[in-house]
Simulated scan of single mutants.
Amino acid sequence: MGLPAIGSYPMPDRSAIPRSHVSWQIDPARAALLVHDMQNHFVRAFPAGRAPVVELVDNITALRELADTLDMPVVFSAEPAGQPPAQRGLVGDMWGPGIGDEPDAAAIVAPLTPRPGEHLLANVRHNAFLRSHLGRLLRSQNRDQLIICGVHAHLGVLLTAADAFMNDIQPFVVADAVADFSAEEHTLALRWAARTGVVCTTDGLLRALLLHRERRNA
């Protein structure tokens, strides 16, 4: 089984954001930004030039620009191309061989190409913490908050948020900066994410980050 056909659907608006069970406040001095699996292979499965992929890329771009401005670590997770069956393991049984050797399939989409000083981690499972040094990277920079965006909401995003929570890293899932196979799966993922962290919108998170900086500099 490979990626399913993905139809266009609208990004959730503020009224669709589930209530989080915690009142954590984002702090740019504690937070890092994770851009999960925003590779051509996955992004091209969405209808080009339509929702949700247009908003997905635009909102992640806005988050990444502010993160750079605020000196927050920016981390990209990316599935390696051409993984042998032994490396794919049970993921291969469920999702097939993964990214092939097609030109640029494994590359991060052009508007988000990693820059010098940003981090690019190979992830061989949906959970970006598993079999990677994401946890060590966050600890080395004294970061205990993780802003998560990218694809897919009910798989990599949700599993990464849950693992962050289990490791005492506060996850912030950005509802309109993630996307999924369908609106239903997107909504389901946000409901589960609200039980392990904060679910927010791009605009709300950007405002909170800027406000925190203004208060700190006052």
Rank of each mutant, 00 (worst) to 15 (best):
G89M: 08
A122R: 07
P4W: 02
A189Q: 05
M72A: 06
V151F: 03
D163Q: 13
H21P: 00
T202V: 12
L209I: 09
P12K: 03
V53S: 14
D68L: 11
A218Q: 12
W95R: 03
S140W: 02
V109N: 04
T113R: 15
D176W: 07
M166Y: 11
I169G: 12
L120C: 08
R19I: 11
H154M: 13
A86G: 06
V74M: 05
G7P: 03
H152Q: 12
Q39L: 01
A5W: 02
D163W: 11
L206W: 03
A29C: 05
E118R: 10
C200Y: 00
A189C: 06
I147N: 11
N142I: 07
L209F: 10
S23A: 13
N142E: 14
D58R: 15
M72C: 04
D71E: 13
A105L: 09
S23Q: 12
G150P: 11
G135C: 03
F129I: 01
N127I: 08
A106Q: 04
A32D: 07
R136C: 11
L63H: 00
W192Y: 14
A32N: 12
T69I: 02
V57K: 00
F165G: 02
R213M: 11
W192F: 15
F181Y: 13
G96R: 11
V157A: 08
I17T: 12
P111W: 09
G49N: 06
V35A: 04
C200D: 08
E79Q: 15
V178H: 04
A51S: 15
E65R: 13
I17M: 15
L70Y: 02
L33E: 02
F42L: 14
L130M: 15
L121A: 01
D101F: 05
R115P: 03
R14C: 06
L210E: 15
A110Y: 04
R19C: 07
D37G: 09
V109K: 02
C149M: 06
V75Q: 08
A208P: 03
V43H: 06
I6Y: 12
N59R: 13
G49H: 07
L66S: 08
Q83W: 01
A81C: 05
N123S: 14
V75K: 06
A189G: 11
A189I: 06
P171G: 12
D163E: 15
L33R: 01
G49I: 05
A48I: 00
R207S: 10
N127W: 09
L205F: 09
D37S: 14
E185L: 09
E214L: 10
T160W: 13
A105I: 05
I6F: 12
P97F: 08
N217F: 01
D163K: 08
L137H: 15
A183M: 05
D168Y: 05
A45M: 04
D93C: 01
A48Y: 00
C149Y: 08
R125F: 07
L158I: 00
V173Y: 09
N40R: 14
R213N: 10
A194D: 02
M38I: 15
D104A: 13
T69K: 09
L205D: 06
T69S: 13
S132C: 07
A5V: 13
A153L: 02
Q145N: 12
V57M: 04
P103H: 00
H41N: 08
Q39S: 05
T202Y: 09
M1C: 07
L155W: 01
L155A: 13
T201Y: 00
